[in-house]
Computed example of a mutant assay.
Amino acid sequence: MKQNKVLFVDDEFNVLNAIKRAIIEESYKPFFAVSAAEALEIMEEQDISVVVTDMRMPVMDGLSLLKIIKEKYPRTVRVVLSGFTQLSQMLVTINQGEIFKFITKPWITEEDFLPVIRQAIEYYNLQMEKDNLSKSLEQRNLAYQKILRAMEQKQAQEKEGLHNLHEINEWIFSYWRKNIRLVIDESTEKLTALDEFIDVVEETYLTYLSQLSTAVDVRTTSNLINNIAKNCNTRLFINNAANSEFTTKGKHEYLLMMFRILVHHIPEQYKRISCELLHKSLAAETLELDFYIDLQRYQLSVSEKHKLKISCALLNKIGNFDKMTASLEYTGDKLNGIRVTWEVGTPSFK
């Protein structure tokens, strides 16, 4: 605990000198003022625990000083040291200055003076300890509330994820039944298409399950671009066309999953795949990210295009819950590229 500071105020130098002799062995740090104005200057510069003041002083008396101290420094303990003991004045002082104790002049050092100062310091320390405990409890309460909100948010996200999973399962099995009916004649071409479909569904579905439950987080543009490249084994090179840095808030892991699945179905011999990133503001605290994966110079087989088509259909169903889309873009039969969009929030940092 830091050292307590006590301020003694009296316009008589002989009184202050007597106080200096009386407190020479005390543990607190003393300050002395010969006027109320000087006392207030010291109060501005020092963290005073106790102020002991005379009542009768020129210009500003002790009562006026105590009223100012009470208003500006309510935790400072106030003690009156005075030879003026008229009852009416004492009552005014008590009522308006909230005095802890009175010490009358002349005093007996060991019986009247030192014990009162020590009690005042102890009272001040108890007040500060109470304040610190209150602040500590308040901070702990805020921390517990924050933890509780985080747990509630996570629970809500998990519940949402399970609900989304239920809808995705319904869609997958419906799509599956539809494709099975198409190959009921067991033609080789249709069986191959079904095998490809099952492979893509299994891969996408298991990758999606591995992401549950994805939490909402905040990332910068450069961080997001680096994360996508890393998730695609550094095969995808994203150019931030606007060359601007912004921050997004959302389920970024789902976006990384979409890129990982799509790039996986582009033949491995293509080591450097170009992607352009554009963005535009939709509304307050909302952006649309537009990623365009350029495939014009690549020769993809019918099977690879089919897998990308199935992947986009599945990813659109998954991404629909978080306003993410993936679509193939053609010129006639020529596949030009893949466009991935995401309507994402931006944190306000208030």
Rank of each mutant, 00 (worst) to 15 (best):
K135C: 05
S134N: 14
S136A: 10
E129F: 03
E160W: 10
L137P: 09
E158W: 02
M128N: 03
E152N: 10
Q155T: 15
Q145M: 03
K159G: 04
I147D: 02
Q139K: 14
L126M: 08
E160C: 01
E152Y: 11
Q155G: 14
R149T: 10
Q157W: 00
L142F: 15
Q157Y: 01
S136C: 06
R140S: 14
N132F: 12
Q145P: 00
L133R: 05
A156V: 05
E138M: 11
A156C: 01
E152K: 07
M151S: 14
E160L: 08
E160A: 04
I147R: 00
K130F: 14
Y144H: 09
M128F: 02
A150G: 09
M151C: 13
R140T: 02
E129D: 12
I147V: 14
S134Y: 13
E152W: 07
L142P: 00
L137D: 12
Q157I: 09
Q153Y: 10
L148V: 03
A150D: 13
L148N: 15
R149M: 14
K154H: 14
E129C: 00
N132W: 09
S136R: 13
Y144M: 15
E138F: 13
S136K: 14
Q139D: 11
K154E: 15
L133D: 03
Q127W: 00
S134F: 08
N141K: 06
D131Q: 10
S136P: 13
L133T: 08
L126T: 12
A150I: 08
D131C: 04
Q127T: 02
Q127K: 11
N132H: 11
E138Y: 08
A143N: 11
Q153D: 12
I147Y: 04
S136V: 07
K146A: 04
K130Q: 09
Q127I: 04
E138D: 07
Q139T: 03
Y144E: 11
E152A: 09
R140C: 09
I147Q: 03
N132D: 13
S134I: 06
M151E: 15
K154Y: 07
R140I: 05
K146Y: 10
Q155E: 05
Y144I: 15
E160R: 01
K154Q: 13
Q155F: 14
E158D: 06
Q139C: 02
N132S: 13
L126H: 13
S136E: 13
E152Q: 08
N141V: 00
Y144T: 09
M128Q: 11
S134E: 12
A143R: 10
L142V: 08
Q127S: 04
I147E: 03
D131K: 04
Q139Y: 09
Q155W: 07
Q139E: 09
Q127R: 10
S136I: 05
K159A: 08
A156P: 00
Q155C: 03
A150P: 00
R149A: 15
I147A: 06
N141T: 00
A150T: 08
A143F: 15
Q127A: 04
S134W: 06
A150M: 13
K154P: 01
Q157G: 02
N125Q: 15
K159P: 00
Q157E: 03
Y144Q: 11
Q153I: 00
N132G: 05
N132C: 09
K159D: 04
S136L: 06
Q127L: 14
A143V: 05
E138T: 08
K146V: 00
L126I: 06
E160D: 05
A156E: 09
E158S: 06
D131T: 02
L137Y: 12
